[in-house]
Design a protein around this nucleic acid. Sequence first.
DNA 1: AACTAGAACTAGAGCGCTCTAGTCACGGGC
DNA 2: GCCCGTGACTAGAGCGCTCTAGTTCTAGTT
Lengths: 330, 330
Amino acid sequence: MSRPTMEDVAARAGVSRALVSIVYRDAPGASDATRARVLAAGEALGYRPDHRARLLGRTRTRLLGVTFDVQHPFHGDLIEALYSAAESTEYDLALSAVAPSRAETRAVQSLLDYRCEALILLGPRLSRAALADLATHQPVIAVARKVKATGVDVVRTDDAAGARLAVEHLLALGHRSILHVDGGKSPGAAERRTGYKSALRRAGLRPVVLPGGPTEDDGARAAKFILDDHPEATAVTVFNDRSAVGLLDAIRQSPREVPTDLSIIGYDNTSTAALSHINLTTIAQNTPALATEALTTALARLTDTPHTPTTVIPPTLIPRGTTAPRSAQS
Amino acid sequence: MSRPTMEDVAARAGVSRALVSIVYRDAPGASDATRARVLAAGEALGYRPDHRARLLGRTRTRLLGVTFDVQHPFHGDLIEALYSAAESTEYDLALSAVAPSRAETRAVQSLLDYRCEALILLGPRLSRAALADLATHQPVIAVARKVKATGVDVVRTDDAAGARLAVEHLLALGHRSILHVDGGKSPGAAERRTGYKSALRRAGLRPVVLPGGPTEDDGARAAKFILDDHPEATAVTVFNDRSAVGLLDAIRQSPREVPTDLSIIGYDNTSTAALSHINLTTIAQNTPALATEALTTALARLTDTPHTPTTVIPPTLIPRGTTAPRSAQS
DNA sequence: AACTAGAACTAGAGCGCTCTAGTCACGGGC
DNA sequence: GCCCGTGACTAGAGCGCTCTAGTTCTAGTT
């Protein structure tokens, strides 16, 4: 005894199979009375349309494939936002996870096997060539990663603007000696660094970039530089939250106080940054905007509507406890 | 010009459609020579079987539905483990996310619309009745949550054993005055509390449970109790990592040193606990085992093989820097 | 009364696979 | 020479939907 089919519902409601289809697709061509009768019959039988058959039957699957990294909390937020954005469209989302044991190509392939009409790749690490190749078959939207592959649309955060935002926040607090802890070769690091530099120059100040990286240890190492070589600095912008947390911790174990003696800004607004005992001022990516833009771009591509191939979303500042006005004595 | 179908491959290889199907399913009934020829033809055309049609065609979908919470890092680990576990079976995984904007019922429904043969629910929050109802139609495995719904199989961590593990670690380090910071009404709290109590009693010691909760602030509050009312304590087991981190931070801001004056053990092995500047000793759930057991249970249910309805996996201790032998003076 | 437009509904051909029930050729056993 | 078993392959009927091209019925025109 398997699940009821459209046939069963049709029989019970005393109509044709086609009519049941019409009702369940909410398509025109059925009177309100019949509509109610069919739905009642379906309800009584516990009928639910078979998604596989539905997909097969129609010419277009109306399916948007999304790959995400299972280890990346930020991707979770994006998926959440994508779901709400897809709500108002006629498209459905199909998820495929990328994990250490499941390569990105594998994840993408599985989506294609479902005949998704477009691919939304969160933080893709595929090569430029691989992405371009994918894009020859269906629209490909790369989210949250600056890639330059032909035919691939990009929706990402304006990292330079984020760095600028951080600097301007510090300038507004009266800081004049502001350092930057670099992110090395991590994605986004170059843009954040130049954003920092240009913002400082525009204020007539001299930018100072300390070597760093993406981890807590990189931040802790940078703290040493600051304590030893830069007693004049009253504020520092850090490549990301992880590094900033490492730096924060190292500074707190020194005689210097945060934020009284040194203001610190991170980048990413990770959940760690929000922890009450860390309480790190940081720059947040605009997740809902990224998701909405990714979806809009995908739909535009699918309908051949003109659209901007690269969308850059401005981030926002999340002021917390690690930044404060420059203290009087410094 | 849509994607090539089985028909196209068959034409190119000069065989029937059925033979192509046989080859791609790796089913017996084709000579090695033809097999190679068909695969070559498929390769040349860039053919990939349509998953929707494949699913529709066969009687059984061989699909396992998995719901997960997009905000829960632990679920990411589980998915990763589930993928590798599913590798060796003939089943495929279908993911469906639970998010603030997407209720669990919605996620489950979508999986059922794809006619998944069994449901693996990660940390389900559905009511006992809802779960039981689901289980009347197909196997349901609840992972990482202690639920008691008829027909629902459960695979979870042995929290009592975890608490015991924590206590035994501290006893082995020579501690005799060991406190426990409670988790309140959080899932798992009761079991961890009783595990702690029984382990202490068995050692002939008096258990002391301090009120607490799941957040950093709860931990920080508990730290106050310890500093003010329990100077004799040399070690503390905490309900979870978040609370433990809050506690750790509060203690570090006091004159007492961790781990010299006070050893702390968390629970969950979150990524925060692993941060080098936190370096929290903790109890880790055995993710691969949970995933494997969930899968095994699902398959057993599907094949009517006898199986244990509730599988309890022992966790393991992750010794880090917040625990040390009881110091001489205390 | 004859005609027509449109709404309500149906028949039936796909969609791209799987799978059962064959057909066909070949070789061995008697 | 005949029968049969076996391996290689094919025909064709689904799977549960969608969708085009109808058919039927009602009501409004002239």
